[in-house]
């Protein structure tokens, strides 16, 4: 598997390592060890892809409630990885830790070879990470096109004066971001609503606009927090097809949370199952389907017990 833009990773490492150290973590010797790793090429044994994202011993609790306990997770470049689990299992917390919205109490997030105690949210887009939200997080007062184009705002170099006067690089940037946004809208079959205010669209379309906004930056890692929640079966399979197409077209690694096990089984390369903040399984769909712990915790009793014998 090709290693995507390794040089970028090194640049980010040099820019961010000092700040990570400056946080004065209790486990700083370990962290230093990891950060120094980035000075060398990422170990990529022939035939084995290196993980784009790995979580090491992530622990997070709110007050006395343990949301995540000692989670390890390793996501290979280019795979679609689902995270499933019952409500309250910690799935969204995990996405929030990966995207830096939450700072874990313990453990590190290793992105593209660089270890973070807390992923810098403000630089997430620069690191090649994009995400969607469980509850819609569109900009209601902007058109669909402007919402999607805002996914490129992190690249803008022109200042407001140049933009107001229409001089310097602002014109080129504006043209570029519009045309890329239009391409994505076409890719996700949203061109017909491009000038509508995002807030006026039906729910399913808003979910897709959010995917478009995340995709427009062509992220290497795409985090989808329940992209199909509240959709009809038809909309779900459509969305699943879009997610797969996005992976194939942009070589994006996808981490997604989803409740509909049927959709997840067909879509993902591997599935991690959480229950009460712990990872109880992490395997291919077939293995997960037959894992007794997963069946007990999430999938429910097997069909041969439909009559309720023994309950």
């Amino acid at each position: 598997m090709p290693l995507p833009s390794y040089t970028l990773g090194v640049m980010e490492a040099s820019a961010y390592a000092p700040e990570v150290f400056a946080r004065g973590l209790p486990s700083s010797p370990r962290l230093r060890q990891q950060s120094e790793d980035t000075g060398e090429p990422i170990n990529s044994v022939a035939g084995v892809a290196s993980p784009l994202l790995s979580l090491q011993g992530i622990g997070l609790s709110f007050g006395g409630v343990v949301a995540l306990a000692d989670i390890d997770l390793s996501v290979l470049s280019g795979e679609i990885r689902a995270i499933i689990g019952p409500n309250g299992a910690g799935k969204s917390s995990l996405i929030n830790v990966i995207s830096g919205v939450y700072r874990p109490d313990r453990g590190h997030v290793r992105l593209d070879g660089i270890s973070y105690a807390q992923v810098p949210t403000q630089r997430l887009a620069h690191l090649g990470v994009a995400r969607t939200f469980q509850n819609l997080a569109l900009f209601k007062g902007l058109s669909v096109l402007d919402n999607v184009a805002s996914g490129l705002a992190y690249k803008v170099r022109s200042n407001f004066a140049g933009q107001v006067l229409g001089i310097g690089r602002s014109r080129g940037e504006q043209r570029d971001s519009r045309s890329r946004a239009e391409q994505i809208l076409e890719f996700l079959d949203l061109s017909s609503v491009r000038d509508h205010l995002a807030g006026t669209l039906p729910y399913g379309l808003q979910k897709r606009v959010e995917l478009a906004r995340a995709l427009v930056a062509e992220p290497r890692l795409l985090l989808l927090d329940e992209p199909m929640a509240g959709m009809t079966a038809g909309e779900k399979s459509e969305m699943a097809a879009f997610v797969r197409a996005a992976r194939d077209r942009f070589a994006t690694t996808v981490v997604l949370i989803e409740h509909d096990v049927g959709v997840v089984m067909g879509l993902s390369d591997r599935i991690a199952v959480l229950d009460y903040g712990r990872k109880i399984a992490d395997a291919t769909p077939d293995e997960v389907r037959n894992d007794q712990r997963v069946i007990d915790a999430y999938l429910g009793v097997a069909s041969d017990n439909e009559d309720g014998a023994g309950i």
Binding site: A125, F133, F139, Y154, A217
Partner: peptide, 19 residues
């Protein structure tokens, strides 16, 4: 548009890289 993005959803604006 960045102004409106921050008004409508500050967290999302930060995540997509608006300063």
């Amino acid at each position: 548009r960045n102004f409106i993005a921050i008004r409508d959803n500050e967290t999302a604006a930060r995540i997509i890289g608006i300063p």
